[in-house]
Design a protein around this nucleic acid. Sequence first.
DNA 1: GAGCACTGC
Length: 738
Amino acid sequence: MNCFINKLKKALLLQVNFISSFYLWAVATLLCSAPMSSRPQYKFLKPGEASFSSDRSDADPTSCSSFIYNPNNKLPLDRQRQRLPIYAVKKHMLFLLERCQTLVIEGETGSGKSTQIPQYLLESGWCTEGMVGVTQPRRVACTSLASRVAEEQDCLLGTLVGYTIRFDDNTTPGQTKLKYMTEALLVREMMGDPLLRQYSVLMLDEVHERTLYTDILLGLLKKVLKRRKDLRVIICSATIDVHDMLHFFNFNKTADKSKDTAAVLSVTGRTFPVDVHYLQEACADYVKESARTVTAVHKTQPPGDVLVFLTGVEEVTQCVELIIQHLNTKNDNTGSMRGASVLPMHGSLSTSEQLRVFQSVGAGTRKIVVATNIAETSITIPGIVYVVDCGFMKLRVYSKSSASSNKEALTEGLSIVTTSKASATQRAGRAGRTRPGKVYRLYEESEYAALPDATPPEMLRTNLSPAVLNLLALGIDNMLRFEFPSPPPASHLKAALEELFAIGAITEGVALTQPLGQRMAEMPVPPQLAKMLLVSGEYGCREEIATVAAMLQVQSVLVTPHANAHNARKMHAKFQVEEGDLLTLLNVYVAWEREQRCKRWCGRHFVNHKSLNRASEIKSRILSLLDKWDVTNDQDIHQTTGGSSISSMRVRRCITAGLFCNAAYLHHSGQYRTVRSNTTLAIHPSSVLYTLQQPKWLVYNEVLHTNRAYMRDLTTIEEDWLTEIAPHFFQRRRVTDD
DNA sequence: GAGCACTGC
């Protein structure tokens, strides 16, 4: 502790009191540390005109998407089902499931596993005692798979076959036997039913994606399997990690194979061969090289649409412009020209702009889609024959801040890294869905061999406090003994435990506090925001905080179109207040409601209508939870205040109660430093405080690492509030050294 | 003094 204090420099500072969290630290350091994922470096060779090597046909377009190309869609449904590759192994699968608790199915796109396996289980009596639950990482997959299966079973969706995603439960209790759901939702269900008694079989689909919730579920199900010998678990994954999964779930530690509790079954897919082309010499600029390659494909290759993978919005925009230049003809605003239509595709586009890539561009015209990673798993564009893969992607990383600080701080950020072999294969597979295709990889063949096999699981790359809170609520109070499929580094767990302790979610003994911690776990928002919501009654600003929390859950409420940035900024200025971004967001929401949620008003003010509607849904869900727990505005506060400035202060004090760990002050050097670790951080240019007067003290909602470490979603606060609201965390001291 | 890939409760 003394040593820690000595490290701080000059002036009057607030300091973190780590005395109470020392125990947590001791617990956390006991946890075994996992090897950090190595981040491969991609080296560019000298610039120059590069050419592609000759055709090769060794592509293995393994991909597992919920959108399945169906070459038999003119046949009757039962004939279609029998033609799927999975049908050939149906009996073997059912036999293995009788014998083993866990079945790992290695299956490729178009094998029919996601739709057929649940029906085989239904038909062979696995649903008499309980349901078959199928998890998916994404919501659209749940809804589309459920409707397909309902159609094949000739039943109304929501009866025998149903789905459950957030805000949308389309099942009938007692009647629904096949239930598709998101992974996160099954984790929620386990809070009420830890042994999942209503399920006889659980099937986890797309496990190779290794989302945070996939890993949580894998660990939890392993525990449940030990307690419930009647339960069966089916793991569907791509080739890459089948043996890891088998090893993870096989409880047989003897050499006697007949005692194995897990088995593997392989199913071939139904995709077309994809020719792989590599550069013979590395390129200096993959954006320019992509545009050059697309142009060459358009001029020399037979008809067929093109999909380009780049890493970010800016690259996509630049590449679209370059391609249009290269194709060198007048283009109208639609991007159409001489037999080609060039379209961008990324998450920040509006729905209507995104829909354009699915629309037909007409016979004789080649569609060229330039996309981010959104096209790798989340969406499938039909008709793609050529893929151009730059070999890079943006990936969330969670690591020690490289910014100048005298104490380690873990922060989240995005980095551009090379893709993995699995990811390169997935991208290539996008070219072979309807007929044989070609992929152009903008790197050398030797570079491919150097790629990591798979992208590291999200569990190793993210802030763990939400996950740890979830596990605690599920009764996993000993992280030491929890079997993570990929154990996260001890430092990440330590940081999560410290944060949860600071906001009062857990005790020094790492137990969930009652009722605060328990309720925070049930809140569908990150722990710090949950804290803010649960104490909002005490500050008399329940409605306002519910709005702020909901607005922080949706992306891009304020839109700034490239072409109309000036006007957008002018309109956005109407909502801006010097108290910061969270109160600005509150203003936007209030204004939207005042205008009767008018869509045209949104357009005029460059506000995303879809996002606001979603925020409204989340807000209602939050408010109903607060009602359930009797979190209501304190009457005394309500009566004695009324003015808007006082109201703003109440809201900001309540925000401080949730985000006090993220406090920063304006150092005399003119830079902001965090109170917790004295890390230098800058105000992000998207913040309203970027142009307004810089406050002495503020709290931020998140840190974004790009070239520098930026704080986003800011709120101005008073220094005194910190010691007042979180006395356990802050101590006022005068530090005189240095 | 710039610029966030994608999910999910």
